[in-house]
């Protein structure tokens, strides 16, 4: 458990964010943004695996250019590699800054009940659950509190936080306003 912070509601957000966006900072995010962030993270993991595969293939090419051929790790091994890399990536990201690249892109942050970053253990458990059973994420659709099953079990939350570094600044002095829907056009 880290020191409590106020994701997305510090003075920075008051200055750099537009008014309608400020009203939702700190609120729990819905299914669309979280799935989108997960997809981005998955793409990141895939890119990472691809990068690793490229590095591996490059290394083989350098060692024996005449006998070079692309290595074939096998589908299962690749899948496990992707899932493992994704789990590690999510764990490190959530335990340190509370946000992955997908979270940053979509303006999300994973926090505990106090608003701070979650610990390494909870980050790993949450990442493993989300990677192995992505379906648990969709409990957000039904939950009145926009919580997935890992959120409920681990007492974590995914909130809107459009600032790059939450947890700094003054204590908020006003209750959050209602969420303002953007224009449909």
């Amino acid at each position: 458990m880290t020191t409590p912070s106020r994701p997305g509601r510090g003075p920075v957000s008051r200055i750099v964010l537009p008014g309608p966006a400020r009203s939702v900072q700190g609120h729990r995010a819905g299914i669309v943004t979280r799935v989108a962030a997960g997809a981005v993270d998955l793409v990141v993991a895939l890119l990472g695996v691809a990068l690793m595969y490229s590095a591996w293939a490059g290394t083989i090419f350098l060692l024996g250019p005449q006998s070079f051929h692309f290595p074939d790790p096998g589908g299962l091994r690749l899948l496990l590699l992707v899932l493992g890399l994704l789990t590690a990536y999510l764990t490190v990201a959530w335990a340190t800054t509370g946000r992955t690249f997908g979270n940053r892109l979509l303006g999300l942050r994973v926090v505990d009940d106090g608003g701070g970053t979650i610990g390494l253990a909870r980050a790993f458990l949450r990442a493993a659950a989300c990677v192995m059973f992505p379906i648990v994420l969709f409990w957000v659709v039904v939950s009145r509190e926009n919580r997935s099953l890992p959120d409920v079990l681990l007492r974590t939350s995914v909130v809107y936080d459009w600032t790059s570094n939450g947890g700094r600044g003054a204590e908020p002095t006003a209750t959050p306003r209602a969420i303002v829907l953007p224009q449909d056009d």
């Binding site: 920075v12 964010l17 939702v24 995010a29 819905g30 940053r104 659709v141 600032t163 570094n165 953007p182």
Partner: peptide, 29 residues
């Protein structure tokens, strides 16, 4: 903090639009 945030919050108008659309989609769902 503001200068540091400018890269993530102020620099990209497109990313802000994506986030805003995401918020709206969350609400609609």
């Amino acid at each position: 903090g503001i200068i540091q945030s400018s890269s993530g919050a102020m620099a990209s108008e497109g990313m802000r639009e994506v986030r805003w659309q995401g918020v709206g989609a969350d609400e609609r769902v």
